[in-house]
Amino acid sequence: MSAALDDDRAESIRMIRDSAAAVAPPGGDLKRVRDLRWQDPGFDAGLFRQMGEMGWIGLRVPEALGGAGLGVSEMCALAEELGAGLVPEPLIPCTLSAQLLAATGGKGPLPVLLAGEVVVLTAWQERADTLEVPGSADAPRRFLPMASGADFFLLPVREGGKLALYELPAARCVPTIERTQDGGNLGTLQPNMHEATKLADDVGEALAVALDEAALVTGAYLLGGMERAFGMTLDYLKTRQQFGKVIGGFQALQHRAADLRMQLALTRASIESAAAALDAGAVGDARRAAVSRAKARAAEASLRLQRECIQLHGGIGYTDDYDVGLYLRKAMVMANQYGSAALHRRRFMAVSPEVEE
């Protein structure tokens, strides 16, 4: 990549990060997030519409179909900023749906999805901790994030060895809702194929690519939460006093903080490297290896760092009123979305040319 292209990409990423401040101000309070917990739909439909107006839902959709046509690096930068603010709106699953609809040539509710006027979720998952898409016509589709606010569902269905795509209005097939640890919700959908409309005969490869990107972008979201929680913890260590001394001066706590900073640095390097690989055109096993290495690290490191941050805060860290605990709750929910650390480690071992038999 030329220096000019490098500069253009850096400027694009900077602008994306700046635009996120409208939704998740750096260091801002989390009152809005707290107010949305345990409520339906669990997010602000008006703010989701604003995300559409800013072009975020169509960030990875080609310009010819109404999207922004930007890269994975830009999408990861945006997700990182949203993760720092614990933004609950279902942007990641909706960008996955937008990519699938783009693969159909723009059929179905793509224009209104890009505008943020509807929430479209892809109901692909039939069992826990997998990236495989069986496409069973009659099997329940599980783990749909923020499903109580969905307007449409996309159903991949296996037909003749291919993965067809159907559209199903949420009003014709209401999902069963369960609450999640962070105050959001997950849905289980029993497909009603009699009410579904076929959009495409084969979206298998498009869905595989979209799922990989969603896994990587979820890792970037977790990275943003790690950064913010670690920053809060450092501020606490610099101000909390014990035995007449600031506890940040205690060597044992300094060592623990240094370990967490290393986890952050390694996670960032892995996410950015994977995003660059995808933007450079990595396909097949190369794409899967890059994504799995990054998602495995982000999922594992986020849970470790968030737990350590709670402990470093002492008793106050365990109270629900203190914000650092919200980041642990979010990590507990998102670490396994689009594949757990264990799943991605297995996949990396299976597809990476760096691993010898």
Rank of each mutant, 00 (worst) to 15 (best):
A331H: 05
A342I: 02
A200M: 05
V174L: 14
A20I: 02
A294E: 02
A206T: 10
A214V: 06
A3R: 10
R14C: 00
Q311Y: 09
R240D: 09
I247W: 03
S273E: 08
V203P: 04
G281E: 02
Y318L: 15
D320Q: 12
E227Y: 06
F152E: 11
D151E: 03
A280M: 01
A280G: 02
A68S: 09
K245I: 14
L163T: 10
C76K: 00
G219I: 07
Q251S: 12
S352L: 05
G204T: 02
E356H: 11
C76Q: 00
Q190S: 15
G55A: 01
T122I: 04
V324A: 07
E81C: 06
A208K: 11
V333S: 06
R346E: 15
G314Y: 15
E117R: 10
L82I: 01
T319W: 11
L70F: 03
D6K: 12
L121K: 04
G105L: 14
D259E: 14
L144D: 10
V174S: 12
V174D: 05
G105Y: 13
D201I: 07
R14Y: 02
G85Y: 00
E308G: 11
M75Q: 11
A341I: 01
R49F: 08
V351S: 02
A22D: 11
Q251R: 13
L82D: 00
D129K: 07
E227H: 07
L86T: 05
A289H: 03
V217S: 04
V23H: 13
D129Y: 09
A102G: 06
F48P: 00
L91E: 02
H313R: 12
L222P: 09
G219L: 04
E356S: 12
A214L: 07
A137R: 15
L110W: 06
L91P: 00
A289N: 03
E117D: 15
G52C: 06
K245V: 15
R297G: 12
G248N: 04
G83R: 00
L199S: 02
W56S: 00
L47A: 14
K31G: 05
L144Y: 10
